[in-house]
Simulated assay, not measured.
Amino acid sequence: MKQEQENKDIIEEMKKYLPIPASIKKKSYQFLMQQEGANPNLKQEVTIIDVFDSGDVGGILCVINGNKDKAIFISLTHLIIKKGCPLSDKIAAYQRKRIRRLQRYG
């Protein structure tokens, strides 16, 4: 329950600052480019245009700019938020906590 509230709080804050500049972590970018239908022109520099909670399995998901015909969804843990964003420290803390939690449960 506590985790759900924390996710809800950070999502509400993120929505206030949309669009949020970010970049895709290198390994995630390589994986994304291998997926069918991924926009090959998508650069590692992206903009988060929407966020939502996908529950415990997926955590916070971000909709990033890309192909106009197809939304691209990526987990917040796969993004690096630009340092100029007022939420960059808070998001980084969420990411560290989420990654530790995922590692604990395999």
Rank of each mutant, 00 (worst) to 15 (best):
C85G: 08
Q103P: 07
Q30F: 06
R96L: 10
A38K: 05
I74T: 11
M14F: 00
R100W: 02
K15I: 06
L79H: 03
L61D: 02
T47F: 03
L18P: 13
G66I: 06
G84T: 11
Q35M: 12
S75T: 10
P86W: 01
A38T: 14
L18I: 05
D53R: 04
M14T: 00
T77P: 10
L32C: 08
L102W: 03
S75F: 01
V51W: 02
K2H: 13
Q5F: 01
Q35D: 06
Y94K: 08
L102A: 08
P86K: 07
Q3F: 09
F73Q: 12
I74Y: 02
A71C: 08
L61A: 08
N67V: 10
K70L: 07
I91N: 05
E4S: 14
D9C: 02
K8C: 07
K70E: 12
G84L: 03
Q44V: 12
N65D: 15
K83D: 04
M1V: 09
R96G: 14
L61V: 12
I24L: 08
V51Q: 06
P86D: 07
E36K: 14
S88V: 05
Q34H: 10
L79R: 10
I81H: 07
K2N: 15
N39Y: 08
S28M: 07
L76W: 01
S88D: 11
Y29W: 04
F52S: 13
C85P: 15
A93H: 05
Y94D: 05
L76C: 15
Q103V: 08
A38P: 09
S23N: 12
K25T: 10
S23R: 06
K82Q: 10
F31A: 10
A93Q: 13
A22Q: 05
L102S: 11
V51A: 07
V63D: 15
V57Y: 01
S88W: 01
E6S: 05
I20D: 00
E12V: 00
P40I: 03
R96S: 14
G55N: 09
G59V: 04
M33H: 06
Q34S: 12
H78F: 02
L76A: 11
G59H: 07
V57R: 03
L42Y: 02
C62T: 15
K97W: 03
R100A: 15
D56R: 05
